[in-house]
Amino acid sequence: MASYHLFHDFNVRTSKFKEFYRYRKSFLHYCAIIFVVIFLVFNLFSFDSNNSEYENEEHSNIIAPEPNLRMKLPFITTPSPPLIPYNYKKLPSCQLSIDSPNPLHDAEAIMNEFNKCASMLLLRFSMNPQGMLFNWPYTIYVCDEEDLTSKIPVRSFDNGEKQYWAILPNCQEKTTLVTLGASDNTKSEDTLKNLLDDFETFGTDPFRGKNSAYGKFYQVALSTDDNKLQLANVYDKFSDKNYVATMNQYTFFNQTVGEKKIDMLWITPNSGNFEYEKYLNKDGEFAKMGIVVCQVNIEITKNDADRWFKLINPLVDEKRFIFMRPIATEGGELIRTYLLNVSDPMCIRKYLQ
């Protein structure tokens, strides 16, 4: 009996050991699988990141003509307030060094109202540049409907192909428009020119040799240096060219334009490699050059989410610009937005007071 019990105990211990061994082996096996999966996922993301950086670097000197895309509002925004007939000749001369005794709009209150609205809306995209750009037309338009913002007399300048927005000056002074990537359709520019007597215009486009709507026009794309940009062979009418001429972005604004206040800046994809995300912020290149920009119409391609993200987040925190009238082309290839400077005294006095 004793020997039997000993044998029985041995078999039990052996069985338990084998069970424990199988469990330990299974546990180590699954741990190894998890480790391998994590390793592969990490390397996959690293590869995508490196590949993306490589692609961005490789294509940073390539430019393609902007396709002719019509706009389509994905929503209905609050309409602009009734606009009184505009007569530039009856306006007083601008006194931009002093505040108006009876300002039409409270710029500081507008900024606080907008910031409260935009900060909450964009918080959900704090770590998601692609998501922020994709949802931009469907989220930020809500801030147009705030009480003070909705009273700003933003006027539409629709040329049938593109939608531009602007606030007309409340006093007489030279108004400067700079367009980076001008098109053949100049209805918007011509309408502004007919409304404003003292209207100075600068235009660039790498694919067009002249444009009658602009007093000074340059067949160039803006770039970080003076090297030519390679042309992406997308459209047949441009297929005979391999490169387009460029102008250094700093040289263009600081010397070619040479104005310390740009009233209206229109930026399209045909602008070239203009680093708008480095120019419009509080400590950006415009500030370093002593240049003030009052109004901006900007077009962003769906592939420009990272640059848009780098621009928008600081602008919200700095409380300098409000963003209005977001719009998307029908296929979502381009997102367009109007930016209004509500922090610079000269812009406030000319357009809001």
Rank of each mutant, 00 (worst) to 15 (best):
I262E: 04
Q163C: 03
K260N: 15
T77M: 10
R208T: 06
S52C: 02
D226M: 05
F157M: 06
S156C: 01
V41L: 13
V12N: 06
S3L: 11
N281T: 15
N270W: 02
P314H: 07
N242A: 10
L123K: 15
P129K: 02
L352C: 11
M120R: 08
D144T: 10
D226N: 15
M247K: 12
K228E: 13
Y30H: 11
F45S: 09
E330A: 03
D99M: 05
K162E: 14
E173Q: 14
V220Q: 09
H5T: 06
V292P: 00
I300G: 06
R325E: 07
G331A: 04
F7R: 10
Y4N: 08
K241L: 13
I298E: 04
A64C: 12
F309D: 04
Q95Y: 06
L280M: 09
L192H: 04
N43R: 05
T224I: 14
E330Q: 07
D190R: 07
R155I: 08
Q353C: 07
E53M: 13
T149K: 01
N87L: 01
D9F: 13
V296E: 03
C94S: 03
I63C: 14
R70P: 00
M120A: 14
I38R: 11
K151D: 07
P345R: 12
D9E: 06
T176S: 06
W266F: 12
H29W: 15
I298S: 00
T329E: 08
N270M: 04
A232E: 12
R336W: 03
S150W: 03
T201F: 02
R336T: 14
L69M: 05
K174A: 13
W308F: 13
N248W: 00
Y86A: 04
M324T: 01
I291Y: 02
Y141N: 11
I98A: 05
N159S: 05
T78K: 15
Y351R: 07
F42D: 08
Y276G: 03
N313D: 01
K241M: 14
V41G: 01
F42M: 12
S93D: 06
E299Y: 08
G290K: 04
Y54N: 13
P153E: 01
V154F: 03
A232Y: 12
K278T: 14
L192M: 15
G290W: 00
N303S: 13
N313T: 08
F157K: 10
W136P: 00
E161F: 10
R70Y: 11
A166L: 13
T186Q: 08
D99K: 12
N87S: 02
V36Q: 09
A32W: 00
K237G: 04
P85M: 01
F238Q: 02
S183D: 14
I322Y: 08
Q130T: 10
E66R: 14
L196M: 07
S15K: 06
F27L: 12
A107F: 02
D304V: 01
F75S: 08
L352F: 15
K237Y: 13
A107K: 01
M120I: 12
V244Y: 12
M264K: 02
S188G: 05
S97H: 06
V292Y: 06
K210S: 10
F17E: 00
N135L: 10
N87I: 09
H8S: 05
T77A: 07
E19R: 13
F321P: 03
Y21T: 13
T186R: 04
I322N: 02
